[in-house]
Design a protein around this nucleic acid. Structure first.
Length: 225
DNA sequence: GCGACAG
DNA sequence: ATCTTGTCGC
């Protein structure tokens, strides 16, 4: 058992204060190694929410196949649920379990996609950013709905997007990942710019609403055994 | 005071 | 997140 990097079980006021201290550490410019493996992370719950299940799926970029993504490793970690869901404090509920799942991996991906927001967060520290900080890896947030910010309706075609703005700051993009479907909310997590985040999400799109890394992690996190 | 509110 | 049938639309 390795010691915790910091206290995760904090009361809301302390958790909020910690987010404010960590947010400046998030890097919004590209700082990525050549991407060969992309991981998708998601959290699911069992036993009426008593147990938290973190799932990570690692995909390798193919050299010829069309989607070009092949599953090379999967990891699951279960632990007692630490705290209830509180909007804005999601990372304190999910990141510890995600980190434990990552420790089981043999492969260290160069990029990680997380189910949730990156910097598109009231204090600019959504789950994707918080996780990226502790993994010290580039991360991208891909959320199914909005937490904060304003945006126009993106165009109808796959790949169409509109900026997600909060005040005078662009914090992400609302992306039409598939025709006729509700758009997804893409935001930089850590060490990735918005342009690069959008690029990777679009590149990882299969024929569904969610990019493959997140979709597969989603399936692994909620599938019953 | 009244909504809004990732998963 | 999770619990779940029918139903609306292409």
């Amino acid at each position: 058992m390795s010691p915790p990097l910091h206290d995760w079980d904090l009361a809301p006021p302390e958790a909020i204060a910690l987010q404010t201290r960590l947010a400046p550490r998030v890097e919004r410019e590209d700082r990525l190694a050549p991407v060969r493996h992309i991981a998708g992370v998601d959290i699911g719950f069992e036993q009426d929410g008593e147990v938290t299940r973190a799932a990570v799926v690692v995909l390798a970029l193919g050299e010829k196949a069309v989607p070009g993504l092949e599953v090379v490793e999967e990891a699951v970690h279960r632990e007692p649920t630490r705290m209830p869901y509180i909007p804005g404090l999601l990372s304190f509920r999910e990141v510890p379990a995600a980190l434990a799942a990552f420790e089981k991996l043999a492969v260290r991906p160069e990029l990680v996609m997380v189910d949730g927001q990156g910097i598109a967060h009231p204090r600019r520290l959504g789950v994707a950013s918080h996780l990226g900080l502790w993994l010290d890896l580039p991360t991208i947030g891909v959320a199914k709905s909005r937490l904060c910010g304003c945006h126009a309706e993106p165009g109808p075609e796959r790949g169409d997007w509109a900026p997600l703005v909060d005040g005078d700051e662009t914090i992400g993009a609302v992306l039409r990942s598939r025709r006729g479907v509700k758009p997804v909310f893409v935001s930089p997590g850590h060490r990735v710019s918005l342009a690069t985040a959008l690029d990777w999400v679009v590149r990882c799109l299969g024929c569904t609403k969610l990019p493959e890394p997140t979709r597969l992690a989603d399936r692994l996190a909620s599938r019953s055994f």
